[in-house]
Write a protein that binds this DNA or RNA. Sequence first.
DNA 1: TACATACTGAACCATATAGTTCAGTATGTA
DNA 2: TACATACTGAACTATATGGTTCAGTATGTA
Lengths: 118, 118
Amino acid sequence: MVQYVSPPLDLSFAALSDATRRGIIDQLGRGDASITSLADKFQMTLTGMKKHVQVLERAGLVVTQKVGRVRTCKLGKRGLKAEAEWIEAHRKLFEARFEALDEIISEMKQEGSDESAS
Amino acid sequence: MVQYVSPPLDLSFAALSDATRRGIIDQLGRGDASITSLADKFQMTLTGMKKHVQVLERAGLVVTQKVGRVRTCKLGKRGLKAEAEWIEAHRKLFEARFEALDEIISEMKQEGSDESAS
DNA sequence: TACATACTGAACCATATAGTTCAGTATGTA
DNA sequence: TACATACTGAACTATATGGTTCAGTATGTA
């Protein structure tokens, strides 16, 4: 029984910040896959794909197992619970802010000043 | 070949992959803040804080407005909707995979009556 | 006017990322 | 045995990140 220390959100959000890696998760949702099949699907070298998979593994989002010469990748049981919780909690924060302020009016008013330098 | 392109999620997940930036969002949930006050709170140079805020701005998570010499930062009205949707959709994917595993197991149990053995 | 405050931009540094190629090793198959 | 397949690791490239310092500019205040 392997006990994973819940990897920090740093690692999982960083893993999710790449479209290829989100695609890999998508793909693994349709079925387990070898490094080679993923590399084919995403038009990338084996070595490049292996690196992506390692990033996902480090984040705990994917687990892999090598049988014979094939390393099979599948979604990790850890899932996206911690990430969903952070997002949901802070979504509420965003919404609470907008209820507190009269956003639309302040938005319409602000045309006069700087907006955003640089 | 599968080509996944969604730059907004790239930017926002990357923005969220840093604990300081998640902290800034947390802080802005409690009230708008200047660059200086954020730099103080997170024990960082002004320049360093400005960079973090720019990352959050590029991702659309924060908006800023300069009035006089003070740049005020607040949560962007775009919120975390797209991120929440991606996470939730894929959380279901993770769960579906594990249910699918159960299905495969039960299919294997009744395999004797079905099709040709391979 | 003089001075402090708040930010801005350029430049630098160390490390990480996303990818590659090339040279292996290990495994399966004819 | 010979050959193909599947991965692995090192090394290299280019760019991004997270931080700094230093030298400004713009703005508010006494």
